[in-house]
């Protein structure tokens, strides 16, 4: 069986006939070629596949493409606007919130969710909010600094 799906990704609509078992992350990466979103653990623990579905963070390795039919998905490629990088991308860059970069797209999408729910988080809340995302090289310290920095610039708060 193949099922037609029509999903808006980063503002552009894609229509494809897919197998029902196709995961959203495989649609994004393998069918549509948007390889910013990563597959890490593939068991909804590491968070490297995190995207926004209708603005809300989800792990795209644990979502079928057919479940996102008719919905709007944002991946890391969709965060930057015409006027440059998203504040989270700027902050991860400026605060050295990455080394190898593999977890970064998911880490930034999860940080986006964190700031959506809590625009001015404490360090503890940042760590708690990112507990579903694993980094295996920076050691998290600079990731927390990056999110704190982005929250400050988004709210115009003092650093």
């Amino acid at each position: 069986m193949r099922v037609p799906v029509s999903i808006t990704i980063n503002g552009r609509q894609y229509s494809r006939d897919v197998e029902p078992r196709l995961l959203l992350v495989h649609l994004i990466r393998d069918v549509l070629g948007l390889t910013g979103t990563k597959v890490g653990c593939d068991t909804s623990q590491c968070g490297s596949c995190t995207v926004l579905i209708d603005g809300v963070a989800a792990k795209s390795c644990t979502c079928l493409a057919v479940q996102a039919d008719g919905l709007s998905v944002t991946t890391i490629e969709g965060l930057a606007g015409d006027d440059g990088l998203h504040p989270l991308q700027e902050s991860f860059w400026n605060k050295h919130g990455l080394q190898c970069g593999y977890c970064t797209p998911g880490m930034i999408m999860a940080s986006h969710e964190l700031l959506r729910c809590n625009p001015d988080p404490s360090d503890d809340e940042i760590r708690h909010g990112l507990e579903g995302n694993f980094c295996r090289c920076t050691g998290y310290q600079n990731i927390v600094r990056a999110v704190r920095d982005a929250a400050g610039s988004a709210t115009g708060g003092a650093q």
Binding site: S44, V56, A57, K59, C63, A110, L114, C117, G132
Partner: peptide, 9 residues
């Protein structure tokens, strides 16, 4: 349960 993204779905 799980983490924020898991709790969303």
């Amino acid at each position: 349960i799980g983490d924020p993204a898991v709790r969303n779905r």
